[in-house]
């Protein structure tokens, strides 16, 4: 188990739990990012401090700090 911000770009993982404020958790879940969903970390913007994720075929961006509250289990291979 690790947090989403520690994944390497291109890595895939399954979401285990979402931390952070209630409003943030609700919005993530409403965008389809529920525990159990597969996520792929597409890229990190070092300058922007932002991560790009792929969930359900959609691309989303989350800030580094907030991604730290997302626990994931990386897929092997």
């Amino acid at each position: 188990m690790t947090s989403l911000d520690l994944l390497q770009p291109g890595a895939r993982a399954r979401l285990v739990s979402i931390g952070g404020e209630r409003a943030f958790r609700c919005r993530l879940m409403e965008l389809g990012l529920l525990p159990g969903t597969a996520v792929r970390l597409v890229r990190k913007a070092d300058l922007g401090g932002v991560l790009e994720l792929e969930v359900r075929g959609c691309r989303l961006t989350v800030r580094h700090g907030e991604a730290r509250a997302l626990e994931v289990v990386p897929f092997e291979g």
Partner: peptide, 10 residues
Amino acid sequence: SVPLLLEMPP
């Protein structure tokens, strides 16, 4: 400060 949750549309 609101969490940044943006979609990156194609």
